[in-house]
Each structure stands twice: as structure tokens, then as C-alpha cells.
Write a protein that binds this DNA or RNA. Structure first.
Lengths: 241, 241
DNA sequence: CTTTACATTTTTGAATCCAATAACCTATAT
DNA sequence: ATATAGGTTATTGGATTCAAAAATGTAAAG
């Protein structure tokens, strides 16, 4: 896969993710080729790969549109991620933490604690916690010793909003966001405790539940109901290499 | 995707699965195009898709070889499948069985019982049980109400031998095969019992353990150590549409 | 008004050619 | 013997063209 080929895939992914290509929108090789300033050939390759990746759906006998994903599909994918991340935590508890893994996780916890230590948060804090959250999750997944789990999580993460990479920030409900995120931070503590104590089943259950922190907890804590202007979706997935 | 395009992908998959294209073998567009009697274009598409599917690995800066898969990778994938199939069983127990799902599962059980009722089995019986096993598993997965689970299982199944679709038959150890398969059939009964009694956690645990029936149980029961001529690998996956 | 048939347009798929790049080989210098 | 440089070959990637197939539009019939 050449540089240009990869750039085309990345660009199309980005356009899908940031809404330049809207859900349900019909994609035509020729217009995309014009838009990206290349011939149809790399577009055709990219469309097939993105379709296989799950970002596109076929239209009629041939051709693609940006895949429309229902709320139910997102929830289903979040559940699958919970189960897989739970498995990763269990495996890590079983094999035990190296010094360096332990340090990384501990650092996430400490920085999370510090973030919440003043009793309130702003948008920047949400983003910071989001990064810590990603590091915490990825450290567990990357060190659990089972590459098939990581693959399965990555493939499942192609459902937008199901992954740990997405956050929504509702600036009109920061007090409730504070509550939600401090709870999630405590969950991290509990997972860590289970890990260092080699409690695989406990780690699995905790981590499985923790997958609900983004969507379900947002609902439960009444986050994300602010007007359009106060809700920001940040996406850092799918556009990475 | 045209008929020819799909045929090319299927053919290449088949050749990978049945060993015509050996693990580690370098694949060249031109020679494959000649071999399949098409131009390079559909081969190029197919290679990229099969690579994304996990069947091929990249070689150097470009080009592909048939992916070499270690025993550990297979084991890891079996574990992931166990966790995902366990999840499917739990979900099905939670939503409950329709009449028709119940009938299908019961039928598998009855036919399994009948198969083992004479106290010994032959190769044909192994194949028959294999089909029943597949139907049992697929019925649970297809009716668990979470499409993301099914997707994750299908994607994980691209690791050869990790899926429920593969069986090995060691004709030199049919008494031990009998033992292994009757045990697996009892496991089916227990899963069914958990399902109809809405016992989600039980169903999940049973189904998770059951994923080990093919590989680990074969080891434990000393199956598959016969000489080359007495071990047949049957594959019904990856060549289906 | 609906359905069917036919013609036209649009879009994708395949083939072919050319370009780019990586891999390999050989010769030379250290 | 090893490393480097240069040349050649092999292979993939992109562009273009032509073909095939699907989608769309229009007219006619019921």
C-alpha cells in the first residue's frame, strides 16, 4: 500500500468521521477522485477497504454509502467492548503486571486524582481525563498477552462512538460531568486494585461495567442533553494511522 | 463487487485454506492472475481485502504472503471466541428463546444423543456431530440480539482453526473422540438447560468453557496424535459466501 | 393511474499501459 | 571479508480506456 493510497483511506475516514461525508450519503468514485485530486483507482481500493472495515454500506447492486448506525448498534458494540476489555483485564491480572505497566497505570490514577482534586472541572479537564482514560485502557489491552483480544477490540471500535476514543463534552452540565468522571476514575482505581491483587474475575467484572461510563452513565447522570451548542463530540479514533 | 471479483476472493481464500498457497508463501499479482485466468486488477483488490481480513501478511515495503499463524495465536483466538460465544449465550438467556430457536437447539441435542446412542462412532458420525455443533453455536449467536457479537465472532474466526467451523478427525483414536464428543454434547445440554431457565451467567460460563472442546480437549484426550494419514482436517469455513 | 418495455445515462469493473519504487545483483573500495 | 554505490530487474501503484451492468427516464399499453 503506497503513501498516496494510505492518504486516500485516511482522508476518506476523516471525512466520514467529521461529517463531511454524511451518514447515508452516496459515495461515487468519480466525484471523490476529483475532490481528492487523484484518479479513480486509489479511491476504488479505499472504498472497498473502508466498506470491509464497516464504515460504509453497499447501495443497490454496487456502490457505497456512508453507513448509518443506529443507537442500538452503538449500544451493542459498547457491550462487546465491555466484554472484551473485561477479558483483557482478567488476562492481565492472571499474568501479572510488570513494573512498567504498573507505573503507567498508577500514573493515570494519580493524574486523575489530581485532576479532580479541586472539586470541579472544565472542558480542558474532560479532555485530559479522556487521554488518561485512553492510556489506562490501552495499557491493559496492550499488555494482556492476547493479541486476538486487541484485534477484536480494534475491529469492534470501528462502530463510531462505541470506542474508548470518543468523548462528548456537554459544557452545560459540568457538575454532572464531574460526578460521572470521578466515578469512572474510582472505577479505574478498583480495576487497578484487582489487577495488582491478581483478582482476575473481579478485574473482568469491573472493567466490563466500566465500558458503560461514556454512554450509559451520560444518560444516567443527565449529561449530553444540553443544546446543540454546548455539546462537543471529540473524536480521536479512526483518523490515526 | 462483481461476480468475478467475488469469485477471485473466494478462490484465493480456498487456495489459502486448503494449502495450495502455503503459509509464508509470497503471492505475486501476475502469477495469481495467470493462474486464475484474469487480469491483475481483481487480484489486486482481492489481495488487499484478504490482507485486511487477516489471511495475508505484508512482505517488505509492499506485497503479500500467506500469513503464518502460530499455535499461540490460534489459542488466543479460541479464547476470544469463548468469551464472545459466552456473551451470546448470556444475552440469549436474558432475552429468552423463541419457540423456533428452542426447537432448533432441541433438535441438535436429540440428534446428538441419537448419534452417540450406540456407544461408538465412526468418521461419518464426527462430521455429523460437527454439523450439529455448528448449528447449535450459530443458532445461539444469530438469535442473541446483538449483531456486534456476531460480527466480532466472524472477524475473530478468520484465524484458521479458531472457529467452530473446523474439525480434525483422528481415525486412529475414535474411542477417545467418542469420549470428547459425548462430553461436548453434554455441554450442549447444559447450555440449553441454562438458556431455557434464563440463567445468563451459567450459560455464559458453560459456553465459554465449551469453546475449548476442539483444541484443548483434543490435547487432553490425546486425540490428533495419530500419524499423518489418520488425521484429516476438514474445513467448512472461509470458503462460504 | 399503474405497469411494462425500451432506450439512454451513469457508474462500476476489468484490462492495459506507463510510472514509481523496491529488491536484487555486481563491481569497487576499504 | 564487509560495506557502498550504481545499474538492472521485478513488482506494485496509478492513470486511462473500454466494457459491462445497473439505474433512470420516457413512452406506450392496460
Amino acid at each position: 500500500m503506497s503513501k498516496q493510497g494510505q492518504r486516500v483511506i485516511l482522508s476518506l475516514r476523516q471525512m466520514i468521521v467529521n461529517g463531511d461525508l454524511a451518514a447515508g450519503e452516496r459515495l461515487r468514485e468519480e466525484s471523490l477522485a476529483e475532490r481528492l485530486g487523484v484518479s479513480r483507482t486509489p479511491i476504488r481500493v479505499a472504498l472497498k477497504l473502508l466498506a470491509q472495515e464497516g464504515l460504509l454500506q453497499t447501495v443497490g447492486a454496487r456502490g457505497y454509502a456512508v453507513r448509518q448506525i443506529s443507537t442500538e448498534e452503538i449500544r451493542n458494540a459498547v457491550d462487546v467492548r465491555g466484554v472484551l476489555e473485561g477479558m483483557a483485564a482478567r488476562l492481565l491480572a492472571e499474568v501479572g503486571l510488570t513494573e512498567s505497566v504498573r507505573d503507567t497505570l498508577k500514573q493515570c490514577l494519580d493524574q486523575g486524582d489530581q485532576l479532580f482534586s479541586r472539586g470541579a472541572i472544565d472542558e480542558g479537564d474532560v479532555v485530559t481525563f479522556h487521554d488518561l482514560n485512553m492510556t489506562f485502557h490501552n495499557t491493559i489491552i496492550d499488555n494482556c498477552g492476547n493479541g486476538a483480544v486487541k484485534s477484536a477490540i480494534m475491529l469492534n471500535d470501528h462502530i463510531p462512538f462505541a470506542s474508548v476514543h470518543s468523548i462528548a463534552i456537554d459544557s452545560s452540565a459540568m457538575d454532572r460531568e464531574y460526578l460521572r468522571l470521578t466515578f469512572a476514575n474510582v472505577q479505574h482505581h478498583l480495576v487497578y486494585d484487582a489487577l495488582i491483587n491478581r483478582q482476575g474475575t473481579r478485574a473482568e467484572s469491573l472493567m466490563r461495567e466500566h465500558a458503560n461510563a461514556a454512554l450509559r452513565y451520560a444518560e444516567i447522570f443527565g449529561v449530553g442533553n444540553g443544546d446543540r451548542g454546548s455539546v462537543k463530540i471529540l473524536r480521536s479514533d479512526l483518523t490515526a494511522d
